[in-house]
């Protein structure tokens, strides 16, 4: 009787293993997916012109730009850990014929993550905003001109260039 039990148990175990081994079939295929992200920069300004209206220096020692804040949207893609920067460089002082107003008399305040206040320069690009890694930032820049009785009458103009760099 002992032999019969061994034989029966052996059969039961073998049947279980065999059933599991034959239960499913699979076939596989593979696909490789790639994407290349290149350095890119994109800059949008809400206004291309800033105007400082005439004002009494005693009453308005600082003249705010008539257009109000300039809204800046800066977007860039860069390498991991690298910095993206937005700078502003004036082409010259404010000029009116032979008269001039130093461009350093123009300052700005800023709002928005990554944006900073500053003073305009015609010799060294000034940082308007900066951040690390790819991404987009939106902020404002509000310009003001230091008013003075020493400015000769005239219609002064200059240009300034924004540069967004995503290395």
């Amino acid at each position: 009787m002992t032999d019969i039990k061994r034989l029966t148990l052996g059969f039961a175990a073998f049947a279980l293993v065999a059933t599991q081994g034959l239960g499913a079939a699979t076939a596989t295929g593979s696909l490789s997916a790639t994407v290349t992200v290149s350095a890119t920069a994109k800059l949008t300004l809400s206004s291309a012109t800033v105007t400082f209206p005439s004002a009494d220096p005693d009453l308005s020692p600082s003249i705010a730009a008539a257009e109000g804040p300039v809204t800046i949207t800066a977007k860039g893609k860069t390498s991991t850990g690298a910095s993206i920067s937005l700078t502003l460089l004036a082409g010259n002082d404010l000029l009116s014929g032979s008269g001039s107003i130093p461009i350093s008399n123009v300052t700005w305040t800023a709002s928005g993550a990554g944006f900073a206040a500053g003073t305009m320069s015609k010799t060294a690009a000034q940082t308007v905003a900066s951040w690390t890694n790819s991404g987009n930032r939106t902020g404002t820049q509000t310009f003001a001109l230091a008013n003075s009785w020493i400015y000769a009458a005239g219609s002064y103009t200059t240009t300034a260039q924004y540069t967004l760099t995503a290395p």
Partner: peptide, 26 residues
């Protein structure tokens, strides 16, 4: 058709991965 959600937040680089297709029955 596979689609990648595009974003300004992706850092520069050549990205890759593998996708395994498996046909199973039952």
């Amino acid at each position: 058709v596979f689609r990648l959600a595009n974003s300004w937040t992706y850092n520069v680089g050549s990205y890759s991965t593998a996708v395994v297709f498996t046909l199973t029955a039952p």
